[in-house]
Design a protein around this nucleic acid. Structure first.
Ligand SMILES: [Mn+2]
Ligand SMILES: [Mn+2]
Ligand SMILES: [Mn+2]
Ligand SMILES: [Mn+2]
Lengths: 220, 220
DNA sequence: AAAATAATTTAGACAAAACTAAATATTTGT
DNA sequence: ACAAATATTTAGTTTTGTCTAAATTATTTT
């Protein structure tokens, strides 16, 4: 697998988002910041290699083999992210670009030893699960704040958007993964939400509420 | 700089070995395990980018810019080797291939933080010096056992050949960097050398003696 | 059920990095 | 000094991954 093939496989995996539906050429092109015609070319190659199921004009989906390949790349990406944050003291909004490169390093032994060295972490710095060596990982039951009823109480366990802008916003407002959060009130008008976090009350916009995952402790 | 360009620059640097003489196309081809015609193509590109001085049929040498680029890659390579051995518990004969990939990761911040994390090491696991950020490093005064007179005493500080076979041989015979070694006798017939190492006497062939560096403690 | 619009694929081109075969320059041996 | 041997470069292809422009297929609107 070339670097480029790996990035395409990963893009298809992320666009699939657990579902079965085929992914469109245009969606892949947008994700990869490339042109649809380039995507078609690559899809043909991946189809040759039995990484994707492809029917002309009908989109693609990962085969079993493609799925496992994707999970292996995601595993590497997230383990490197943990390394960068836990060991090298990177901020959680700085790791993505570097992990994007590191995920392509070829060495079974390296990633096994890295995993051990990091203490076999189960989630990356953004709360995303790290697949095991054989491609399994716990599908967590986290929910977005925007989808939870008033009164819900839970722990922040992940972000939906892991852009630098959003992560920096959370840092600035002292919201971190692991914090306990309670939903106090929601405005129908704009979807903004009043929350209590670390004994501090604050109001967050709908845009924030729909990008922060909670793991529920108590239901309302 | 592409991965391939970087590998060529590094090859030219290593072939230069500190000297000024231009490096031949064939020498580069052999080092890179490629064909002379491919080397010519790449040399032209590197010359365009002012990384090498090139006169047709007369070989190449690194420019100031090329020298600094080479040192930066060597720095990365050796820092990653230290990481693999010190932190991930790789054996010193297993790190080269992986470091060959890791040296191409693009991130100033990453390599700075890695350097700090490793405690600013000055040599890699094979005893080779690690250039500083601005391309300086101490030119050590180590000498090969085969070039030293009888009675010399010193510390093993590096290997000339860092092939897996040689490194494994040293491991097997319990010779490690840092060990103190004294030259007892040399056979004129085959160049083999009797040594005392860690209070143990043994005989090593000329091939071993000409691939192990000592830093002298006492002259004979 | 066409017509218009949008999505996708094909055709043809290009740059990077490699190769083979042929041409040319340099070095060596006599 | 000249022929032979060796080293290097050039010319012409190939593969990978990208692009633009044009053609084709699918979807949506009227
Ligand atoms: Mn990537
Ligand atoms: Mn992540
Ligand atoms: Mn390399
Ligand atoms: Mn080394």
């Amino acid at each position: 697998m070339t670097l480029s093939e790996e990035d395409y496989i990963k893009a298809i995996y992320h666009l699939g988002n657990g579902k079965e539906d085929p992914i469109s050429t245009n969606a892949i092109a947008e994700q990869m910041e490339t042109k649809p015609s380039s995507v078609t070319d690559m899809i043909k190659k991946l189809s040759e290699k039995n990484m994707v199921n492809y029917k002309k004009y009908r989109g693609v989906s990962l085969t079993e083999k493609g799925q496992l390949t994707a999970l292996s790349i995601v595993r590497k990406h997230r383990l490197w992210e943990v390394f960068l944050v836990d060991k090298l003291d990177f901020a959680w909004d700085e790791v993505h670009e570097v992990a994007e490169q590191l995920e392509h390093i070829k060495s079974e032994k390296l990633i096994d030893k890295l995993d051990t060295y990091l203490g076999n972490p189960r989630v990356d710095p953004h709360g995303d699960p790290i697949p095991s060596k054989d491609g399994e990982f716990k599908k967590s039951v986290k929910k977005l704040i925007s989808e939870l009823p008033i009164g819900s109480k839970g722990v922040c366990v992940g972000v939906n958007d892991s852009s630098v802008a959003f992560l920096k916003f959370l840092d600035k407002n002292q919201i971190a993964l692991g914090d306990t959060l309670k939903i106090l009130e929601r405005e129908d008008f704009d979807g903004s939400v009043s929350i209590k976090i670390n004994d501090r009350e604050m109001r967050i916009s709908d845009q924030i509420a729909s990008n922060l995952f909670l793991e529920i402790l108590e239901k309302s």
